[in-house]
């Protein structure tokens, strides 16, 4: 007999991780209209940054370093490349894939393709609702909500956040109202990168860290953002949890091999029935 509480707890844990995976992708898509296919590579860089820093400093410090490193890397990618090509969707699409492939090659040269496991920030776990939950899963769940809360406060309460929202609605209008659009873009890429770095640390810990680990999170981010609605943070959060619960139920009732199948079916249904996604383009509501 399956305990529904087990599905609830596991689904929530998976969903919280998927939120982290999708939020940066959604943010850049929503504010800039840029489909950043290097997003999966950002997540991978977060895992590797944590791996490298973890050998030198404490787990918590390595976690912070990974977040900052990916945030700054994202800003560098924007300033060094994307800002010059972002008005051409196809070129941006191709260029960000190439960036991801270059990062994959460089990491392969340095670390080989062998998967590595990351040392969790906190080891151990507790039995809860008929399942065993590891402490770092609980930390990922709690911190993802803290990070989302901070993101909401940032866009709602700060001048820069309001400018990000405004620019997501109309860049021309924002310029004519005196917004520093370059500053807005840099901040957006930093926040998106930081969320990806955050996700990378926990994905690398829960699964494995290797130079090919960027593909699955990228596909997942794409599915979540399409289901939730392009540019809608609220939509991304709901879609991430929806897929988290769907996958957990699939694994429980059908089998692990079918894990991603129903998320893809849901994607097809949404594309056919509501192509704009569950929440359309409303950004942060």
């Amino acid at each position: 007999m399956v305990n529904p509480a087990t599905i609830l707890v596991t689904g929530a844990m998976v969903g919280s991780l998927y939120v982290l995976i999708a939020i940066g992708f959604s943010l850049i898509y929503g504010v800039r209209g840029v489909i950043n296919l290097a997003h999966g590579a950002f997540i991978m860089l977060g895992a590797f940054a944590y791996l490298v820093a973890g050998g030198q400093v404490s787990g918590v410090a390595a976690f912070v370093i990974a977040i900052l490193f990916v945030g700054l890397f994202a800003v560098g990618l924007y300033l060094g490349l994307v800002r010059y090509i972002e008005h051409n969707v196809v070129i941006t699409f191709l260029a960000t894939v190439v960036v991801a492939l270059i990062i994959q090659q460089l990491l392969t040269l340095e670390y080989s393709l062998a998967p590595r496991s990351l040392e969790p920030i906190v080891s151990g776990g507790i039995a809860f609702a008929g399942t065993r939950v590891r402490y770092y899963q609980l930390i990922a769940f709690a911190l993802s909500w803290v990070a989302l809360g901070l993101l909401f406060l940032f866009v709602r309460r700060t001048t820069l956040g309001r400018n990000i929202l405004a620019t997501s609605m109309t860049e021309k209008g924002a310029k004519l109202a005196g917004t520093n659009v370059l500053y807005v873009n840099v901040a957006t890429w930093f926040v998106a990168g930081a969320f990806a770095g955050f996700a990378g640390v926990f994905i690398g810990t829960l699964q494995s860290t290797s130079p090919t680990m960027w593909i699955n999170p990228l596909g997942l981010a794409f599915i979540i953002v399409t289901i939730g609605g392009v540019g809608s943070i609220k939509g991304s959060i709901i879609a991430a949890y929806l897929i988290g619960f769907l996958e957990t139920m699939t694994v429980t009732f059908v089998g692990p091999a079918w894990r991603g199948m129903f998320a893809l079916l849901l994607l097809v249904v949404i594309i056919l029935a509501k192509p704009e996604g569950l929440f359309g383009r409303e950004f942060i509501e």
Partner: peptide, 12 residues
Amino acid sequence: HCTEDRDLFPFF
């Protein structure tokens, strides 16, 4: 400059 399309922030 007030543009022809107004370029307001629609959800504000």
